[in-house]
């Protein structure tokens, strides 16, 4: 650091070069989330009931399971990008910021994995009680 001229330091502090990519992915995932949530809301409103049998039978059909899997990936991706910006805006202390972002990544991936696996489990047949 000490070897840098002020100009090069400013350059280094400017664009981290991944910002535009982050911005773009936030837009891309928001559009995908929009389409998939319109599908989810329409599906929920059209299902005759939201009880166990109806919901699991619905998710066993690839025509529902696949969009649901895409919805999970898209939404968790979008939310991870979004919450990272929120954290960066409010958490200024470097250690705490790093810790928060590590936690965010852990929770995002764990949540997405749990939801994703759940849909796969339903789609591929068995449930815990009646196989």
């Amino acid at each position: 650091m000490r070897m840098e001229t002020p100009l090069s330091r400013v350059r280094g502090l400017g664009s981290a070069r991944s910002g535009a990519h982050h911005w773009w992915l936030e837009r891309l995932t928001s559009i995908a989330a929009f389409v998939l949530f319109v599908w989810l809301i329409a599906s929920i409103l059209r299902l005759p009931s939201l009880d166990y049998g109806t919901v699991t039978a619905w998710l066993r059909d690839p025509i529902a399971a696949v969009p649901m899997l895409l919805l999970i990936v898209t939404t968790f991706w979008h939310l991870k990008l979004g919450m990272q910006v929120v954290i960066e805006d409010y958490v200024h202390e470097e250690g705490m910021k790093l810790f928060s972002i590590v936690l965010l990544n852990f929770f995002t991936i764990a949540g997405a994995a749990l939801a994703f696996f759940s849909v796969l489990k339903i789609a591929f047949g068995g449930d815990a009680s009646n196989g």
Partner: peptide, 26 residues
């Protein structure tokens, strides 16, 4: 956005995990 990302995401995960675990959890 923050509310959906926390409470909303938790609710979605719970709903799907419960459906995958069986009638009792659901």
């Amino acid at each position: 956005g923050s509310g959906l990302a926390t409470i909303g995401a938790a609710a979605l995960v719970w709903w799907l995990a419960a459906a995958a675990s069986g009638p009792e959890a659901y």
